[in-house]
Design a binder for these strands. Structure first.
Lengths: 226, 226
DNA sequence: CACATTATTCAACACTTGTTGAATTGGATC
DNA sequence: GATCCAATTCAACAAGTGTTGAATAATGTG
């Protein structure tokens, strides 16, 4: 009603285009969780009939897939650029940038995070494969950064790169997911600062754990908002 | 048929007692995930009619609750004993013991882990509360161990106890959950060793991150199987 | 105007879910 | 043997699910 048809590429003007459906799906996933998100709820949120979703997407699984494809290329692009061996910035800064990338792209999308977590995997073998295909290259690039850090003498030489990557990014996902919901129950931090406090605490611990010289001071780490 | 009635405390001999239903529920949760686990699937696994579940438990939520109550007291008991200030063993050993407790009690129960992860929370506010009520005292006791470690000069004095606890146990849950499923895709570790390798790598990183003297050698850490 | 084309809705299908009330089983007690 | 009662099953409910085929609305083109 208030949203004008952005681009009507057919004889009948478009009221709800596929992107709006994806927006709605993302919102419903965020509210109700992945498995409980029904097509009817998504349609209601998008302001259209459930059948319209089937006009634009073949099935619920295709909808999932489209949602993944809307997010992952940007993440992969950023991580890929970050893993460029020509990037000679301190390893600590580059690893912190990994957290910032996750923050930037996944902060507002609990549905995608739930997919990555594998909430929907059981019984949906096809989706498991889809996710693995998209997550794997990201993991590989981050582990390259770690290998470069070891070669440059910034990191302990005895680190297993994949596990070390797993620890870094997995915890960041958990921080984005549960900290804002959990931490206010224990402390009285202002909600906006929960994420930043958690991320900095985590990176402080992590860096000390992986650095060749744990006591050496960290370079200044930019805020997510910068 | 092959299972004899263990204890028939009523006029009609018990074919499927509540504990067997809980066993079945646990198994189905492990296979299908929490949300997808239907009472009919649980009943099939237990070898009885779905209605029998309602004879022993008031509702599906009561079943969840009973499952929580079967696991959590033992975990809490172990952590409580570990947090005894009279325990003067090295802090590193005590924190490693935390991981062992989680391993011991939660390794074979993905359903409970999913509950802790909060997979079912959306829209089930009552369950969120039930879980929080059981997880919170455990978290508090672990954070006591960390505070004691700081006071004893084993840990850095600037650690936020709750976040430091969160990092330790949250990662252990993730290790139990996803590492056995994920790591074989990347490496070729024998499956039995995946967990132990992950736990040791994680604790190695974590300890360096929190110790007052990161370079000091760790005490010998006992295997989960010991 | 009629026509073709795209976007959208409607109504229904077959199925699964949590739940319940009535009926049935089978041993213990009188 | 009749009675009682816990244990168990049966059949059904109302609600919700993903999905589909036919029908309709609204535009541009001949």
């Amino acid at each position: 009603m208030t949203t004008p048809p952005i681009k009507s590429r057919g004889p009948k003007p478009t009221k709800v285009d596929p992107d709006q459906i994806l927006d709605a799906a993302q919102a419903v996933f965020a509210e109700e969780g992945l498995r409980a998100a029904s097509l009817r709820a998504i349609a209601r949120q998008a302001g259209c009939d459930p059948a319209l979703i089937y006009y634009h997407f073949d099935s619920k699984e295709t909808l999932f897939k489209a949602l993944l494809d809307r997010r992952f290329p940007a993440v992969l692009h950023d991580v890929e650029r970050l893993a460029d061996p020509a990037d000679v910035r301190p390893t600590a800064l580059r690893l912190w940038e990994v957290l910032l990338i996750y923050h930037r792209h996944l902060k507002d999308d609990p549905g995608i995070r739930a997919m990555i977590r594998g909430e929907i995997v059981r019984g949906a073998e096809g989706l498991t494969h889809l996710i693995e295909k998209r997550v794997r290259p990201i993991v590989v690039h981050v582990s390259r950064i770690i290998e470069q850090g070891m070669a440059r003498g910034d990191l302990r030489p005895d680190l297993p790169p994949l596990l070390t990557t797993f620890f870094l990014v997995k915890m960041q996902l958990e921080i984005l997911d549960v900290l804002p919901a959990v931490l206010p129950h224990f402390t009285n931090l202002p909600p906006q600062e929960v994420l930043l406090t958690g991320m900095r605490s985590w990176f402080d611990l992590y860096w000390r754990g992986v650095a060749l010289h744990p006591a050496s001071p960290l370079p200044p780490l930019p805020d997510p908002t910068a």
